[in-house]
């Protein structure tokens, strides 16, 4: 049986706002009966204020689908449509103290029902643009369609690259065979795992920061190498720096020791940023790890 949180169980056994809603003026029917999960979300929206005055659901689905529907109605009641649309599937999952990776699609369905119901209220046509495949990586909840799309979009060849781009396979590693199957399905063959030695990119600091020439892996290695070269200088001042996360153009680092809280922190980050821009040949932003939480 699934390891459902107390909150999920509670919302399943005592669902809020279930059943039809009289005078609903926005309805969204989403899901797939084939997959065994489908949801009708009904909204009563105040036309003056666009505030959701009431929300009800009817769900054909598993325990977590019912709990996610119930949570969704609780979250959006009292919100304006625009605020409600900011609710992400992660918000629904968080409200329930998390969902098992295989069940994250239940929260996604909730979010889509919301979009569909709002579109219905506004007289727009909502169409679903995402397709869900078989769950491949259970550690990070990555499905086959997502992996396939990423392989195609980036011309990925090896399992390592797939892991770098999607995180799939980066946990327990049990899904590596399945990832290789997807690679074979897309590329027609499996390439050897060792990345081909690529020529170092030509010197291009002045080129406009378009698509980076490096693979994600190479890029992160480069960032690490650059930070490694800076560390001795910081250590001389009894400080240090650690790479925490690379999110596109944003590079999050943790300053420690004397650097932490130092008046010169901003200047230090600026210096690191300068070195990284030089090394990577693209514009990046170096941010303290604290900025990540606010993000």
């Amino acid at each position: 049986m699934w390891d459902y949180s107390e909150k999920v169980r509670e919302h399943f056994f005592n669902p809020r706002n279930s059943g039809p809603l009289e005078n609903a003026n926005g309805t969204g029917d989403v899901g797939s009966i084939k997959c065994g999960d489908a949801l009708r979300l009904m909204l009563k929206v105040n036309p003056e204020t666009e505030v959701i005055e009431d929300a009800h659901f009817q769900t054909f689905g598993c325990g977590s689908a019912i709990a996610s529907s119930s949570a969704l109605t609780e979250i959006i009641k009292g919100k304006t449509l625009d605020d409600a649309l900011k609710v992400s599937n992660q918000d629904i999952a968080d409200y329930l103290d998390g969902l098992p990776p295989e069940k994250m699609h239940c929260s996604v369905m909730g979010r889509e029902a919301l979009q569909a119901a709002v579109a219905n209220y506004r007289g727009e046509v909502w169409s679903d643009d995402h397709e869900e495949g078989d769950l491949v990586c259970k550690c990070f909840a990555i499905d086959a369609v997502m992996i396939e799309d990423t392989i195609r979009a980036n011309g990925l060849k090896t399992r390592e690259e797939v892991t770098n781009y999607t995180k799939a396979g980066g946990g327990c590693s049990a899904c590596h065979e399945k990832i290789e199957d997807v690679l074979i399905a897309v590329n027609g063959r499996l390439y050897s795992s060792e990345p081909k030695p690529k020529k170092a990119p030509a010197h291009l600091p002045n080129e406009s920061p378009v698509k980076p020439q490096l693979t994600n892996y190479q890029r992160i290695r480069k960032i690490e190498d650059t930070l490694e070269a800076i560390r001795p200088m910081l250590q001389r001042d009894h400080g240090d720096v650690t790479l925490i996360e690379v999110d596109g153009k944003k590079i999050y680092v943790a300053l420690s020791g004397a650097c932490q809280g130092c008046q010169m922190e901003a200047a230090t980050l600026g210096g690191i940023q300068h070195k990284l821009v030089e090394a990577l040949g693209e514009l990046v932003q170096v941010l303290p790890v604290g900025a990540m939480a606010n993000h």
Binding site: D29, G31, S32, E112, D128
Partner: peptide, 8 residues
């Protein structure tokens, strides 16, 4: 017919 959800 009464309930035909959009595939999501």
């Amino acid at each position: 017919q009464a309930f035909r959800p959009e595939y999501a």
